[in-house]
């Protein structure tokens, strides 16, 4: 790799004599020119990153195309997205980008312990990001928003199919038993919220047994079970209305979020793939921390940093597209 392409007759042999004052006597000063001015590791990392660009461009592009092609798409507050949390996560990832770049700078000047500190900071920030993401996932799961069928409770429309799904859930043996105990509980033994929810539930059961159901009644049922939160600047808290499902989490009655199923599929796919990339990055940092991060490891740290910046980059697009569109 390091042999020069052109050999010059009076080049190397008599070089020692006046090597230090090069140029003076008309010597041809040889300069090594590799085919690409970057190391193999970095070249491979950039090739990998360009495939990653296309991977995430496909995911993000599909999301945008699906979203704007849909007749109805849920608003962020309909699906319990917390914009402040998303913005905070953006901030966390930007901070981690700074710390990894500082780790690389420290590695280059052979300050191994400083590099180690910055890398630990990156690891902590990445874990914080994942923790917040996990908390957000939990908030979706607790509202019955899942990307897969047996757990997901989302129905697209408040129609008769929805009504029969609610009826079917209320008719399950285990639920019948618990409803019976709930009905027999004296009102003063229940907290105020559950007392109100219980009477709402009785209304819902009466409406569902009505043979002459109207579309509007199904919408009322859906609103009683899990109202779509109204928009509020405080996001999760402010506009959050409580329905029967919130008062009795064991009920897990079907809910209505128009466009919610496609939203859940894309949301969990995109943020899930991003989270996998974050996890891989954290593993890489953990492995790197077992080395002495002196200048000998500068190439490794640089490549890990390039990957991590890419993960940050994806989130920079995911955040507005997912949380603010």
């Amino acid at each position: 790799m390091s042999s020069p392409a052109i050999s010059v007759p009076h080049g190397h042999d008599n070089d020692h004599g006046h090597g230090h004052d090069d140029g003076h006597h008309g010597h041809i000063h040889l300069q090594y020119q590799p085919s690409l001015p970057l190391s193999r590791g970095k070249l491979i990392m950039w090739l990998f990153l360009s495939t990653e660009i296309m991977f995430f461009a496909a995911l993000l592009g599909s999301y945008v195309v699906l979203r704007f092609g849909a007749a109805v798409w849920p608003k962020p507050h309909h699906v319990h997205l917390s914009e402040p949390l998303g913005a905070f996560n953006t901030f966390v990832l930007i901070c981690s980008s700074v710390t990894i770049v500082l780790a690389f700078e420290a590695t280059k000047v052979n300050k191994a312990s400083l590099a180690r500190l910055w890398m630990i900071a990156t690891l902590v920030l990445g874990s914080l990001f994942l923790g917040i993401k996990g908390y957000e996932y939990q908030a979706k799961f607790s509202h019955g928003i899942f990307p897969w069928a047996p757990h997901g409770l989302i129905h697209e429309r408040p129609d008769l199919y929805y009504g029969s799904a609610v009826r079917a859930r209320l008719g399950e043996p285990a639920i019948i038993d618990r409803l019976k105990t709930l009905d027999e509980t004296p009102a003063e033994n229940l907290p105020a919220e559950q007392r109100a929810a219980r009477s709402a539930l009785q209304d819902v059961r009466r409406m569902l047994s009505d043979t002459n159901q109207q579309a509007f009644e199904m919408a009322v049922v859906a609103d009683q079970i899990a109202p779509l939160p109204a928009e509020g600047p405080s996001g999760h808290g402010g506009g959050h209305a409580h329905g029967i499902n919130d008062a009795f989490p064991w009920l897990r009655l079907p809910i209505v979020i128009p466009g919610g199923n496609m939203w859940a599929s894309t949301y969990f796919l995109l943020t899930g793939f991003h989270a996998i990339h974050v996890i891989v990055g954290l593993i890489v940092f953990a492995v790197l921390l077992t080395f002495k991060l002196g200048s000998a490891r500068a190439g490794m740290v640089e490549n890990a940093g390039l990957y991590w910046h890419f993960v940050d980059l994806v989130w920079i697009f995911l955040f507005p597209v997912m949380y603010l569109f």
Binding site: A71, P158, A219, V220, D223, Q224, P227, L228, P258
Partner: peptide, 24 residues
């Protein structure tokens, strides 16, 4: 398929519930 009308219906139902919570 969900349609914009479904969203309107749900909003109307929510409004009805808010105006008179003891109606049902």
């Amino acid at each position: 398929m969900a349609r914009p009308a479904d969203l309107l219906l749900l909003e109307k139902a929510a409004d009805a519930g808010r105006v008179d919570p003891a109606a049902h």
